[in-house]
């Protein structure tokens, strides 16, 4: 049996909003490590990896590893019925075909149960190799969201280049071109406002802005975002989920054939 109690239920609500437009159906895996998900978008260009560590839950019971296939749109519908301050408990029986989401108001005067049907999902689990990235950029997540949104009004591909000068986001379209350069800036009042550029080697890669924009749905989860780039690999766009885990989006680059 499985019983996971998350006091900060709004985190789970935000997590679902961050992935439901990218992935339709996915298996949530539950083990002693935590509650996790790995899934690709329907065109297999992007991959999302979510981990909510068991220590982040107030109560975490998972008697044996369990994989629960869920339609993320339906799960999102149910979680939208939870208040932002509600405590959310996820419950399931081993071998059962449903999962229950229980919402408790902070004052315990309202308790709701939503039972959702599980589904069988055939999904391949991919091995993500540990990599040394050529460049890693950390910046305010709202700034990254703004850049992706602005550039997608001009073009559909962003070129992200990291050099000694900073990180450059460029696009081109029918009406013209756009370049946005950010320089490292660590002299800020709040650490989350810093722009930190760690360049081991210069790198330049092209990506579809449509996916980048989709990743920025995770902006409410974290003040900062980390973008890791290597010329041989998909970019990793990572948002921390409070102290308990992360959402990592992997996006395959556009490459010359």
């Amino acid at each position: 049996m499985l019983e996971l109690r998350l006091v900060q239920g709004s985190l789970l609500k935000k997590v679902l909003e961050s992935i439901k437009d990218l992935v339709n159906d996915a298996n949530f895996d539950c083990s002693s490590t935590g509650f996790s998900l790995q899934a690709m978008d329907s065109s297999h260009v992007a991959l999302v990896s979510l981990l909510l560590r068991s220590e982040g839950f107030e109560h975490y019971r998972c008697d044996r590893n369990l994989s629960m296939g869920m339609n993320l749109g339906n799960m999102s519908k149910m979680l939208k019925c939870a208040g932002n301050d509600d405590i959310i408990t996820i419950k399931a029986d081993d071998g059962g075909d449903t999962v229950t989401f229980m919402f408790e108001s902070p004052t315990q005067d309202k308790i709701a149960d939503f039972e959702m049907k599980l589904m069988d999902i055939d999904s391949e689990h991919l091995g993500i190799p540990d990599a040394e990235y050529h460049s890693i950029v950390r910046m305010p997540s709202s700034e990254f969201q703004r850049i992706c949104k602005d550039l997608s009004t001009i073009g559909d591909t962003v070129v992200i280049s990291v050099t000694k000068e900073g990180v450059k986001f460029s696009t081109a379209g029918d009406i013209g071109t756009a370049n946005i350069v950010l320089r490292q800036n660590t002299t800020v009042d709040k650490p989350e406002d810093a722009i930190v550029i760690e360049m081991n080697e210069p790198v330049s890669l092209s990506f579809a802005l449509r996916y980048m924009n989709s990743f920025t749905k995770a902006t409410p989860l974290s003040d900062t975002v980390t973008i890791s780039l290597s010329s041989e690999l998909p970019v990793v766009v990572e948002y921390k989920v409070a102290e308990m885990g992360y959402i990592r989006y992997y996006l395959a680059p556009k490459i010359e054939e």
Binding site: M40, S43, H44, V45, A46, L47, E124, H125, L126, G127, I128, P129, T157, S206, A208, E232, L233, P234, Y250, A252, P253, K254, I255, E256, E257
Partner: peptide, 14 residues
Amino acid sequence: LKSQARISRFFRCS
């Protein structure tokens, strides 16, 4: 001209 690569080009089934 560049074309969109798929994830499977980089990550293998585990």
